[in-house]
Amino acid sequence: MDIVLQQLVNGLTLGSVYGLIAVGYTMVYGIIGMINFAHGDVYMVSAYITAIVLALLSFFGIHSFPVVILFTLLLTIIITGVYGWTIERVAYRPLRNSTRLAPLISAIGMSLILQNYVQIAQGARSQGVPTLLDGTLRMHIGDGYVQLTYMKVFILVAAFSGMGILTYIIQKTTLGRMCRATQQDRKMASILGINTDRIISYVFVIGAAMAALAGVLITLDYGSFDFFVGFVIGVKAFTAAVLGGIGSLPGAMLGGVILGLAESLFSGLVNTDYKDVFAFGLLVTILIFRPSGLLGKPAVEKV
């Protein structure tokens, strides 16, 4: 019992992080129909920025947890956002009117560039951050117990509030309305006076910001990272986005949580070796019965 509960908690934290990163894939896909393969590496860059900001803060003698976490989140999100903007401007915007696959290849190239750039700039060794928040939460259930570090609790709270804020921005603000309008019909939106190029840039910034949030949380929790962490988590988050229905914001979050839970429960109850096989198998099965993902709109075939 306690073990199942612990696995649920594990899955939920992992899934919430997948969800945060999946948002970036799904929004970009929704608006310009491209798979942004460099997104996982944006997350990786944000992990490095987190460590650098933390080192700077401790250099200036700031050690109180709320202040440190606030500054780290703020600075990392801003700087990673700028990365998102720059990447879009340099590698994708010149390809706006070309074939569908050209930006995809450009994104793969960008992903290689980011990885190697960070490796050259910061070295190949894995890096770490000190533990900020000590202590654990332990709930006894029967003979066993469920144990959560405070950091995990913080991840859950921060990830879900991040998603809440994003949903609010997309649903309620002018910016969000413009995003949705551009997503539905780019030509029409631009006729109505929306600067669609700018909106697309904002979408990249938002995606990068969410990846940065995930980057800060994960980095603080695991305490270590290297320049290669973006790849595996990127593929998983993309899977989550497709699972939920690519292009759908709530879908990405739901997909992330489902994928996290599925991995956790399968490896906990069955076998760790085949957990990724199970995850992809689940995806294929869902897509066979719902070809547009869980919450995606079915593609309309016009005749």
Binding site: S106, I108, G109, M110, L112, N116
Partner: peptide, 8 residues
């Protein structure tokens, strides 16, 4: 790095 740049 150069390989990636080349692709872009």
């Amino acid at each position: 790095l150069i390989f990636g740049l080349l692709m872009v």
